[in-house]
Design a protein around this nucleic acid. Sequence first.
DNA 1: GGATCCTTCTTCTTCTTC
Length: 351
Amino acid sequence: MFIRNHVTSVVAIMYQCTSLPMRNFSVCRYLSSPKRRSSYSLVDSERYSSLVKSVMSSKVSSQTPETLLAEDEHIYGRIVKAHIPPTVSEMREPKSLHPFLLHEKTEETDEAESAPPLRIILKRGQDRASIPSVTRVLQQTLSSEQIFYLERWKKKMIAELGEDGFKEYSQNLFRQGKRFHTALDDILMSDATQKDEYASDTLELPPEIQGYVESISHILEDVSAVRAIESTVQHDTLKYLGIVDCVARYRGVLCVIDWKTSEKPKPFLSNTYDNPIQVAAYAGALNNDGNYKYQVEHGLIVVAYKDGSPAHAHKLSSELMLQYWNIWLQRLEKFTELSSSHVSSAFSQKK
DNA sequence: GGATCCTTCTTCTTCTTC
């Protein structure tokens, strides 16, 4: 078990290395090197001896900040405040420094928690037509490694089931996932609105869903104060939207909850691929959406199984959420670059 | 009424030893 956990964490570090910007990559390389060496030890000290001497020398220069400024002015002229256009990342960066540790929105009251869950239906108007969704961004910015393994899996399945068989298999997976979500929405909504602890027991469940619901029954015992169900969230600054499965308290902590169905067991967070990024993206959007009068800092991914075996619940602390939020920003940036290059190439073709 | 959108899922592995 230890070895497995160890390997998982090493893989997690490797994954982070590949997902983070170059400066972080060098940090990872530094951490993974067998012997931590200072980069200064690599400097050809003989070659730079005069420079080192001049830097280390205590001799005071005849130049002072004032004389340097006067000299600069003489050479370059007076400083004129120039308008520097913001970079894409600056434009996209929200005004808030931390999307999960802000308390700008008014504090919650017990009354607000006892109100019926919010459900903002997605309406695609003209203003929203161009706004990408979380799913679309994640799908279109998969790594080449992810695409490779998915394609390989697909080929294997088609070889096994045939084209039509695979199509039917995929549709069935989607159908089960959708039915599970619908059933869960009914359960949560009926519990939240009827104030009856056993209200959901009277609900009729489709037979193929019963195992999944049984799988999450122990999780549902710890879920309370449901605030939102299948509700649209939109990041007003970063311009993206999505639909959160659920916002509720899990063991007393307010979380964005994502329900998943899976054929394979997913006991580790790393088994859930991009799901944590999805949850962080939803939470970040909710925290920047005026329709929600509260902040959510935590996340929860619940993986349910058809045979009724206990679901795996992966908690995402605010620290983890921030890490995944940063990965989400990178994916969003990549998506923007891809779509703008797509637009410009389409434009040049038209020309 | 039809089309489109947001979701719903799918990946990480192969061989040795006890």
